[in-house]
Computed example of a mutant assay.
Amino acid sequence: MTASDLSPASEPLQVPQANVPLVARMFRTLLSGDPNGTPPWVARIATGDADCLVEPDGPSWVVHGSLSTLVGGVRALMMQALQPGAVTGVAEHSAYRTDTIGRLRRTTQWLVITTFADVATAQATAAAVRSMHERVTGTGPDGRPYSASDPDLLRWVHDAFTDSFLTAHLALGSREIPGGPDAYVAEWAASAELLGATDLPQTQAELRAQLDEYRADPGFGRAPATEDVAAFLRAPNLPIAYRAPYRVLALAAAATLDPADAALLGLPQRPGAVRAARGMIDILMWALSSTSPAERAARMRLGLQQPG
């Protein structure tokens, strides 16, 4: 797959067809490294205290338990590439080109543990991330220093993730968010607070206002690394079998971006992309259990009934 694979085209976007059990195994292996979807860090969710950083069956469980996160995660990475300090830090300190799948799995691990594990496990995971952030420092393209531990930079990353997961769920998710979008924004702020972020949005309106403040930066979307990272996200270093499904997800992610953000990244917004992604997600939902291994483990730990 090349960068041109995300260019506009006249032919309708088709959902890749495949043997469904094989698709399920591929999906679980890609995200967790285990064909059953239960690596050691998922198994740990079944142990620990009977508490959770977020409300069981609440907004974050619904949003993060949905396969819409496949689109939301790609969209979040696209958005992060727009902030000069964030994208320069990725370019200078991340092995995203040579360890694409490893980075995807680490991001998945953070999201899943923070959502479904007990508070102590979430705090321990956050401490490890903070330690890593302390080593990510440098100078941005405008001469301003950046640090992954900077609360303002942490807020941008959190806002980009929150907006992306929420937008993807509203476009592709099948379950209503308890309390609505505002409840999700307010609840999920707890995850960023563990990392040291401050002044986090508590409503969808506050989230949008903060994103617009970042967009007002003259360097927004214009860092030298932005174009390179955006090009990589159009054609990441994935095994051949995953490239066609990824293309569907990436096109849907681009389609849900703010048009000005998509233009800065050079990403087309194709009609029908979200519909095609929904078709692929429906196939995965049919192939997989209605709940993820992580959610089932959390329900076991908390003594909650498994959904029917």
Rank of each mutant, 00 (worst) to 15 (best):
residue 111 L to E: 00
residue 255 A to M: 04
residue 15 V to A: 08
residue 152 D to S: 14
residue 222 R to P: 04
residue 30 L to P: 06
residue 155 R to S: 15
residue 113 I to W: 00
residue 195 L to D: 09
residue 81 A to P: 10
residue 26 M to D: 08
residue 117 A to H: 05
residue 27 F to A: 11
residue 229 V to G: 01
residue 138 G to M: 00
residue 77 L to S: 09
residue 175 R to T: 15
residue 176 E to I: 14
residue 227 E to R: 12
residue 239 P to Q: 02
residue 88 T to V: 08
residue 24 A to D: 06
residue 174 S to W: 12
residue 297 A to M: 08
residue 214 Y to S: 07
residue 33 G to C: 01
residue 25 R to A: 10
residue 248 V to C: 01
residue 267 L to F: 08
residue 103 R to W: 05
residue 265 L to V: 04
residue 94 S to V: 12
residue 212 D to G: 04
residue 221 G to E: 02
residue 258 D to S: 03
residue 27 F to C: 09
residue 304 L to N: 11
residue 255 A to T: 13
residue 74 V to C: 04
residue 47 T to P: 00
residue 308 G to E: 10
residue 161 F to Q: 10
residue 85 G to M: 07
residue 106 R to Y: 02
residue 102 G to A: 07
residue 287 A to F: 09
residue 123 Q to E: 14
residue 19 N to T: 15
residue 178 P to K: 05
residue 195 L to W: 11
residue 136 V to F: 00
residue 121 T to N: 03
residue 308 G to D: 09
residue 198 T to I: 11
residue 17 Q to I: 15
residue 108 T to D: 01
residue 31 L to R: 09
residue 252 A to V: 11
residue 250 A to T: 10
residue 188 W to M: 13
residue 64 H to K: 05
residue 219 G to V: 13
residue 133 H to I: 14
residue 156 W to I: 10
residue 276 A to N: 06
residue 229 V to Q: 03
residue 170 L to T: 15
residue 74 V to H: 03
residue 136 V to E: 02
residue 187 E to A: 13
residue 2 T to Q: 08
residue 308 G to V: 12
residue 307 P to C: 14
residue 193 E to N: 03
residue 221 G to V: 03
residue 283 I to M: 04
residue 115 T to K: 00
residue 74 V to M: 01
residue 156 W to D: 07
residue 187 E to F: 06
residue 98 T to R: 02
residue 130 R to H: 08
residue 29 T to R: 07
residue 289 S to R: 15
residue 59 P to H: 02
residue 85 G to W: 06
residue 142 D to C: 05
residue 47 T to V: 06
residue 297 A to Y: 00
residue 239 P to R: 02
residue 68 S to M: 07
residue 198 T to S: 10
residue 162 T to P: 01
residue 307 P to M: 04
residue 197 A to L: 05
residue 36 N to T: 14
residue 91 A to R: 10
residue 47 T to W: 03
